[in-house]
Simulated assay, not measured.
Amino acid sequence: MAHVVAASAERTVDAPADEVYRYLADMQLQARFLPSPFYDFQVEAGGVGAGSVVRFKIDFAGGVRELRMQVTEPEPGRILVQTDTGGSGLVRTFTVTPQGEQALVSINSSFDGESGVAGFVERIIAPRRLHRVYGKELARLDAYAREQRVGH
């Protein structure tokens, strides 16, 4: 039986929450924030917010997984969710919370992990590794937000 594996990271981003959310909702921009092990990011449908469909690959735990994510916005302007349509159970949730002229951004994810010994190892290693990866993703988002503020 598979077990749910969860991972998360959060960071304060130096831009107002509405701007940060717009960056995350724009799927072409979001591709800029994805660090390794994500690659081959493509927008299949839509492109901004709910209804968008994106595809990317992730080189993780010794194998490559191709993911096709459907985007929803349970709380537009605050929560954006990407859900894998291919059966991995991966759900990535981005939450943007205003903090004055900045925004607290969190990425939370969960997916259906392996069972047995492989699952045991995955439940130990995957959350730590994904925390680091999501930390890099949020750092790239912050860097982009800072560039935009300097450019205006």
Rank of each mutant, 00 (worst) to 15 (best):
A2Y: 05
A2N: 12
A2T: 09
A6N: 05
A7G: 01
A9W: 00
T12H: 02
V13D: 05
P16W: 12
E19V: 15
Y21R: 05
M27S: 13
L29K: 15
A31V: 04
R32G: 02
L34A: 15
S36I: 07
F41W: 14
Q42V: 09
A45E: 14
G49S: 05
V54S: 10
F56K: 02
I58K: 04
D59W: 13
F60R: 04
G63I: 08
R65T: 12
R68Q: 11
Q70C: 04
V71T: 06
T72C: 13
P74F: 13
P74C: 02
E75S: 10
E75N: 11
L80R: 06
L80N: 02
V81M: 05
T83N: 05
T85M: 07
T85P: 01
G86F: 01
G86C: 03
G89A: 04
G89L: 01
V96A: 14
V96D: 07
V96F: 08
P98R: 03
Q99H: 10
G100P: 03
E101M: 06
V105I: 06
N108I: 06
S109Q: 11
S109V: 00
V121D: 07
H131G: 10
V133Y: 02
L138K: 07
R140A: 13
D142P: 05
A143P: 02
A143S: 14
A143L: 15
A145E: 14
E147V: 06
R149M: 12
V150D: 15
